[in-house]
Design a binder for these strands. Sequence first.
DNA 1: GTTTCGGTTCTTTTT
DNA 2: GAACCGAAAC
Length: 643
Amino acid sequence: MSSPDFQQLLNAEQLAAATAPDGPILVLAAAGTGKTRTLVFRVAHLVRHGVAPDRILLLTFTNKAAREMLERAHEVVGPGVSGVWGGTFHHMANRMLRRHAPKLGFAHDFTIMDRDDSRTLVTQCVKEMKLENKDFPKPAVLLGLFSSVANTETPLADLVAQRFSEEEGLGPHIEAVHAAYTKRKRDMGAMDFDDLLVNGLKLLRDHADVQDRYQQQFRHVLVDEYQDTNPIQAEFVDRIGAGHGNVFVVGDDFQSIYSWRGADFRNIMTFPERYQGAQVYKLETNYRSVPGVLDVANACIAGNPEQFQKILRATRPAGARPTVVRLRDGDEQARYVVEQIRLLKREGHRLSDIAVLYRAHFHALELERLLPNARVPYVITSGMRFFEQAHIKDVCALLRVLVYPTDELAFTRLLGLLPKVGPRTAVKAWLKLAGKFVAKDPAQREILRSVLGAAAREPWSRIEAILDEATEGAGADDLVERFVDTFYGEHVRHAYENADERLDDIGAFMVDLARAESLDEFLSSIALLTNVDGDDASEEGGKEAVRLSTVHQAKGLEWGAVILLWAVEGMFPSSRSMNESEEGESEERRLFYVAVTRAKDVLRICVPEVRRTREGGVIYCTPSRFVEEIPPEFLLREHVGFL
DNA sequence: GTTTCGGTTCTTTTT
DNA sequence: GAACCGAAAC
C-alpha cells in the first residue's frame, strides 16, 4: 500500500494510477493533469516496493524529461533510483547496440550519423548516380521517404506511389538511391537515427537470447508521451514487456503531434485491445490553467472527432479570459509582443515565466530582430541544435577521424577545411585510402600527402601533429584546444563574421568533452541529444529570459503567460500540412490545443491582418479556423494599431 | 577540372 | 542564416 506522503502529494486519480498493481496500464492524462508527477511517483512506488532500479526502463521523449523525472523520484525515495535506465528510444537502442552490434554485423564503436550527415550522404549518392536535376526530389524529401520506410515499415515503392505520379517514373531511381545510401552507411559502419531504432528492434526480433536478456532485466517498462510512438517503437516496448506485461504507458491522444515522423496515435487507442487485462486510468483534473484557458482548449479540440473523450476539469479560480489580438502585420505583432512582455513584467511575471510560441521557426523572424534592440533577454529553442552548427561539427570531425577509421563523412569534412580542398579532392583522397584512414600509418600519410595540393600540405601537417598527440594519449579536450590554436581558430576568423561567439561555443564544448568518460561514448551521446536537452546545462542558474519556441518543442512545458504568433490560415494551420485527407487538419488542431494548454494564466493569440512578401507586397490573412471555431464568448478581443 | 566567392532565394514540425 | 547557383579564379 502507498505511504501517507503519496496520498498528500497526489490526488485520487493520480494516486490510483501511480500505485496500480502490476500488469499493463494505460494512463490517459489530459494536459496539465500531473502526468509527469504520476510517472515520477510510479517509479518511486516501484522502487519503494522492492523493484531494483536497474530493472526499470523509463522511455521518454527527450533525455531531459527522463533526467528530470528521475531527479524528482530521487527526492521522493532517495538515491535508490539512480540505477533506473531512462532516456529516449534512440538513446536506449544505442545503449543496447553498443553491446550487441556485432550480431548485426556492426562494430561496437559504430558511428552515429546526425541529420546533416545523412543529408550529405544522400546528396553524394544522388550525384554519383547522375540523377541530379531539377525534377529529381531534393535530399530532404528523399530522406523523409527513407525515414518513413524505417519508421512505419512501409515499402518504399508504396510511399513513392502515394507521393509521385506513375508517369514521372521516379520509382526505380529512388529505390536505387535508397540502396546506395544503405550500402554507403554499411561501408562506413555507420547508423543514422532511424537505423538505431530499426536495429534496436532487430536485435530483439532476430535474437531470442538478446530479447530474453532484456525481458529478464526490465521487469517494468514505463513510457511517457505514448501517443507519439511509431510502430517500431511500440513493438520495441511490446517485446520487452512481453514476458511479464508490466507495461505502464502514459499519454494523451489529444496531444499526438508527430504523425509526420511515423507516430501513430492508434498505438494508444488500441492499447487496451493489444494488452489483455489492461487497466485504464484517466487524469482529467487540470491544475495548470485558469478556467478561461481550459474553456478555449476544450472548445478547440471538440473539432476533432474519433478520439478518447476527455474533458479538462478546472480547479483554479477564474482568471482573465484569453484574448485574440488583431494586428496589422508581423512588425506590429513584434512590437506588441515586446509591449506585452514589459506589461507582464510590471504585473509581476518573471521573464522566464513568459513564452512566445509559433508554428514554424521563421514565424518569429520579426520578433527576433526586435528583441535585442528592445533589450528584452530571450532564449530560443532553435531548429538547429547546438551540435549541428558548422563549427561544432568541424571539431567533431577531428575527433571522429581519430575514433572511427571508416568514418568517411568526418574525414571528408576535416579535409575540406584545408585551402584548395573541396568535396572532389576529399573524396578522391578517400578513394585512394581505400575507405579507411588510420592516422598513424606512415603509408597512409604518404598517400594523403600525394593527393593534397601544395597549399594544403603545410596546414595538414599541423593537423597531423595533433593526431600524433592523440596516439600519445593526450586528452580529447587538449586536442581540440591545440586544433583551434594551431589551425581552426584562424579558419573560423576567416570564414565567419561572428567568430568570437563560435569560438566561445567551442570552449563550452571542450568543457563537456573534458568530463566525458570516453570519446566514443561522448560522440554518440551528443549525436542523440535533443534540442531541448541542453537547456539547463547551458543556462547558468536559470537565466531570466523570455522563451521563444515552436509549439512542438514546447510540448510538456508550461508558462504563466503564453503569446501565440500568427494564428492565421496558412501559417497555423500550416498550408503545407493541409493535405487531401482530414488527418492533416486534425493534427494541426491538436497542435493548436497543445499551444493553448501551455498557458497557466495569460493567453494571447495574435492574428495579423497581412503578411508582407519580400518584394514589398502584402498578402491578406484570414484568421485561423482554430480561432474562428471557438465560441466568441470564451474570448476577449483586442485591436491594435490602425486597421 | 575544381575551388571559391558573391548573389539570390527560401524557411513545418525533429530523434 | 544557409543552401543553392553561376561565374570567376586557380
